[in-house]
Amino acid sequence: MVTPIPYQVFVKEVASEFRTRYALNALLMFVVTTLTMVVFSLGDNTVPYEILSGMLWIVIFFSAMSGLSRTFVTEEERGTSLTLRLLTSATNVYIGKFLYNVVLILAMSVFIAFAYRLIIDDFVVRSSSIFWTTIVLGGIGLAAASTILAAIIAKANTKGTLFPVLAFPVLLPLLLTCIRATVLSVEGAFFSEAFKDFQILVSFSVVMIAASVIVFEYVWND
């Protein structure tokens, strides 16, 4: 019963996370803290839904930055990257890590999205199908770009602060599209109106994953 190796790498990441609880706990606290700050800064003011949509994605972006930055750093720090290189090919490692990041980000952004809609009364989504499609497609794109960038920063000397700096210009087309689609979901647009945005999100992920698979081995191999 030999299952695909990327899946085994994915399982290893999940098992490791449940053992150490590092990323999940830190991430949860980060999300709770950020959401609390958003709520306090809004106060009793009525804020336009365009701003609220933008803020949702700011929360998701920075949470992703804090949650995914350690994907490869942990392997470098503990000296297990050599082990992983010995056991399997770079591509298998990339796909496994990417899948794990997708699951982590989707869990995170679904949680954020629910919490956000719950605690911010002015943020009323009229088209749930557009909203959740945006969350899912945006999450996948975010994971795609974050995985390769996390691999890059794991090899650099200053790890923490570098991540958002590298990620922001790369992720901007994705974030702007997500914000726009979220605005459409609040406006209660038809699904077809957001279709062009979804196409952009899907092709962003496809292009990012394809490019990552090609260049990952240069980053991964010493």
């Binding site: 053992r19 297990t80 050599l82 082990t83």
Partner: peptide, 11 residues
């Protein structure tokens, strides 16, 4: 077998 090959400590 190498001094540079580390096991996963949490497993």
């Amino acid at each position: 077998v190498s001094p540079y090959l580390n096991m996963y400590e949490e497993f």
